[in-house]
Simulated scan of single mutants.
Amino acid sequence: MSEPTTLQMVASKELGGAERWFIRFCAALAERGAPAELAIRAGSALDGLDLGGLPIHRLPFRTTWDPWSRHAVDRLIRRIRPDVVQTYMGRATRLTRLPERGGPVHVSRLGGYYALGPYRHAHAWIGNTKGLCDWMVRQGLPAGRVHHIYNFADPARPVPPERVAECRAAHGVPEDAWVLATLGRLVPVKGHRHLVEAMSRLPATLAGRPLRLLMVGDGPLGPELRRQSEQLGQQDRILWTGWQRDPAPYLQMSDLIVFPSLDAETLGNVILEAWAWERPLVTASFRGARELARHGEDAWCVPCEDAPALAQGIERTLSDPSLMRAMTERGRERVEREFGREAIMTQYGELYRSLAG
């Protein structure tokens, strides 16, 4: 059987977790030579980015009820006649209405615990954690059509030392500093305010080395978090990089990855990125972390929304080189075995063949 053709559709205007996954997923499809085409919102943050060289269709995607956008989606699907239409987030999913039989299969990929009303008309659903899939079934979706596939972690791609040195100098990071990094949108669910407070609870130095925290990302909470850091006297220790299309230099210069998300966080790609980059990890025990991480083995886990525990976890980890080495090694083994790109893309290929068959 030939590989099923797919149309991958995302209607978002800005870049968030789903859109960053979409970028990586498109690159993986292209690398495999998969017969895929893309539909994105015209003029969105995705428009103009490298999406693996796959054919791109720019649609209006104005609102979830806009008849012109609905017509544009229907017309595109009739024209290219894919075997599978995979939608991301609510808008693209709501605007895609396909018959139960005799046409493409509509699969909706969910990366969060969203209200399922806008998704129920799809023919199948993908959840990126087991917990999310179990929840979808409890909400009434048929178990036989709910499919679990984790996100993959891209392998670390080190950059030249000169590039790392440039980033370090640009942010004034001392050569002898412990470098902590946290990656993600500056939005409430990421729990950054607890990390800012945790920094205020850490000593000026650990083992004679100063501490610096790289906030890699942007978002609506940026101004509030900066004010908090100033109020707590952390403006010199917390450094703001803004959104980075390629965070590799910051991952490469880091000694520790910290992920302070709230319990509502579904998966947490930062966990996989830390393991792929062979960096020790301190993470809050949000529901995605409880499914993925093993405390004291591949991560140091602390309660959510608990700045004192987060500070203690950071200090405990940085003070124990043997613990850091052990967690790094276990994380590397797990990401290679369970979350590699080839393994996850093989699962997607098998699912598409099953749905199209």
Rank of each mutant, 00 (worst) to 15 (best):
T93H: 13
R75I: 01
L59A: 04
R209F: 11
R94F: 07
Y113M: 08
H148F: 14
E273K: 11
R20Q: 12
P210C: 06
E230Q: 02
P142G: 11
E166I: 00
P260T: 04
R91G: 13
W275S: 05
T5H: 00
P303Y: 01
L272Y: 14
D47N: 06
L95A: 09
R75W: 00
Y150I: 00
R24F: 04
F339Y: 15
G53K: 04
M9Q: 06
W178Q: 12
I344Q: 10
D134V: 03
R290T: 04
R332W: 13
W135A: 03
A293M: 11
L211F: 04
R209W: 05
G53F: 07
A143M: 06
R20F: 00
E305I: 00
M324N: 02
G16T: 13
E273V: 08
A170T: 08
P104G: 01
E350K: 10
T6S: 14
A307Y: 01
G340S: 15
I238C: 02
A115N: 14
H171F: 13
P142F: 15
E100R: 15
R287C: 05
F286E: 00
Q244H: 04
V105H: 05
G117S: 14
N269Q: 15
W240R: 05
A45M: 06
E273H: 08
R97A: 09
Q235I: 02
L262G: 10
V173I: 15
Q235C: 01
E197M: 06
T346I: 03
V105M: 02
R120Y: 08
A307N: 11
E291R: 06
G357C: 04
G340P: 08
D154H: 02
L214K: 01
E278R: 15
G219L: 03
G103H: 09
R316Y: 01
Q244W: 05
L355Q: 13
M1V: 09
W243Y: 13
S229P: 12
M199W: 12
R287N: 09
R294P: 00
E336Q: 15
G349I: 01
R330C: 08
T5Q: 07
S254V: 07
P155M: 00
G217V: 01
R209K: 14
P249E: 10
G144T: 15
L239M: 10
A248Y: 00
M324A: 15
L310W: 06
L98G: 07
K13H: 11
R94W: 07
D255I: 06
H123A: 06
L211E: 07
R81G: 03
Q244R: 10
R332Y: 07
V196I: 14
Y114N: 14
K190P: 04
Q139T: 14
H194A: 03
L221H: 09
